[in-house]
């Protein structure tokens, strides 16, 4: 199954960049991620296994049949990564989201920017988003 269009667009763009330009692109994405609710910065919404503090709020919009995501990270590069996922998957159906192959992380050249510790932060965040989509599918 192809990636959702906005995620594919990012992968195509990012794959062509050198490390420094890609980092700057991540910072641009980070700056756009601004509306995470303060009252959801808690342990329930925290994504473990990331090098920085990451929160994710995932909800299923039953009327429209799509997932809605909001995210936050205290490190800007990580925040940029969260923004790519939120921007790429917000408003997509749970079926589309659960079918996303994590291989796009390597294709986009994000593997190296992420390997600061042995925990794969971006893969964790994607997993958490997919778990929420799976739960929505199970309920519907």
């Amino acid at each position: 199954m192809p990636l959702p269009p906005r995620l594919q667009q990012f992968v195509d763009e990012s794959a062509m960049l050198d490390k420094l330009t890609r980092s700057m692109l991540l910072l641009d994405y980070a700056a756009k991620l601004t509306d995470y609710p303060e009252d959801k910065k808690d342990n329930i919404h925290r994504v473990r296994g990331c090098t920085s503090l990451v929160y994710l709020d995932a909800n299923f919009d039953e009327a429209k049949g799509v997932m809605r995501y909001k995210g936050f990270a205290d490190a800007q590069i990580v925040k940029g990564m969260v923004a790519i996922l939120v921007n790429g998957l917000d408003g997509e159906t749970p079926e589309t989201i659960t079918a996303v192959d994590p291989a796009f992380i390597q294709e986009a050249g994000l593997g190296e920017a992420l390997s600061v510790t042995r925990q794969g932060g971006l893969a964790n965040i994607l997993q958490r988003m997919q778990n929420a989509a799976e739960a929505a599918l199970a309920r519907s």
């Binding site: 050198d18 490390k19 980092s23 090098t51 800007q76 990580v78 600061v116």
Partner: peptide, 19 residues
């Protein structure tokens, strides 16, 4: 965040540790 600094330093060919 030191993580951000380390990623941006790496992108410039400078390898340091963050954490």
């Amino acid at each position: 965040h030191p993580h951000d600094l380390a990623v941006l330093l790496d992108a410039q060919g400078v390898m340091v540790r963050a954490g």
